[in-house]
Amino acid sequence: MIKIANSTKDLREKYLRKDLLPTIFCPGCGNGQVLNYVIRAIDALNISQDNLVFVSGIGCSSRLPAYLEAYGVHTTHGRAIAYATGIKLTNPELTVIVFTGDGDISAIGLNHFLQAIRRNISITVICINNENYGMTGGQVSPTTPMGHFSTTTPYQNIEHSFNLSFLAKAAGASYVARWTTAHSLQAIKSIKKGLQKQGLAFIEMLSPCPVSKKTFKNTTEYLQYYLNESISYSPNQNNNTSAHVFKDLHECFTAQYEGKIIVGEIIDKEKPNYHQLYEDLRVRARNEFRKNK
């Protein structure tokens, strides 16, 4: 059970830069919801704001660090994770959270994302996936489902789309969760788990873009869609508590093609993180240096 410790008013007072509010986001945008969840997760874990660094790239989602009363770095398009690598490595005391969009992480910055997973840097990457480039007015992105219309695919998107969570899992991430913005409590729980993870945690938040990606006529239809069509991914789950248990990935992807949204905790495993390994290396290097002296 998740305890809601502080009232929203207190959280707002504590964590938001009030001189920048209200946010620049459109009505019904999921970015604000993710901000809401992240604040609650941080508050529940009692992380000091002085040690919090929010790193972001370019796009709507990347405007989030500006609103947070903590350190924020709004970097260049797609490079947020590369900046975060430098920040986290040189000061492991910091809690580094990367806010990124789907264009940021799956198109221009995909390499940095996969490499950071490979290195297993202890950062929490929160991808707000609205399946299009919202800030520039709704162009196709690598996560836009096939067959969708966008301003740059006026005759339907003919490209296969990425499922970022499964991509992260395949690359070897130590923690991956996928939720929609309608899954408030699950998202908060996953963000908390991700923040506590010693290694790269990736949380994909499927988010509505009611203005640029006109799948639905109004914002509440998005919410209904997320609530009704989400099915939880829980393979190998023995205790059948979930209504939907996939036999294998194939079945899972078939459901996705049929318009279902796969959500859930995709993976949670232990893996040595880069910082530990670097410190081990340092000891070895020093011993060798002294021996050769």
């Binding site: 790193v55 770095v73 970097t75 260049t76 490079r79 590369a82 900046y83 975060a84 690598t85 430098g86 920040i87 490595l89 040189t90 000061n91 910091l94 390499n111 940095h112 490499q115 670097y278």
Partner: peptide, 21 residues
């Protein structure tokens, strides 16, 4: 710390990030 990054873009990004520490 010395890091061999995935490309020069990331190298430049990492040194800017680290500079703020």
């Amino acid at each position: 710390y010395c890091l061999q990054m995935e490309d020069e873009i990331a190298s430049m990004a990492a040194i800017i990030g680290a500079s703020w520490n």
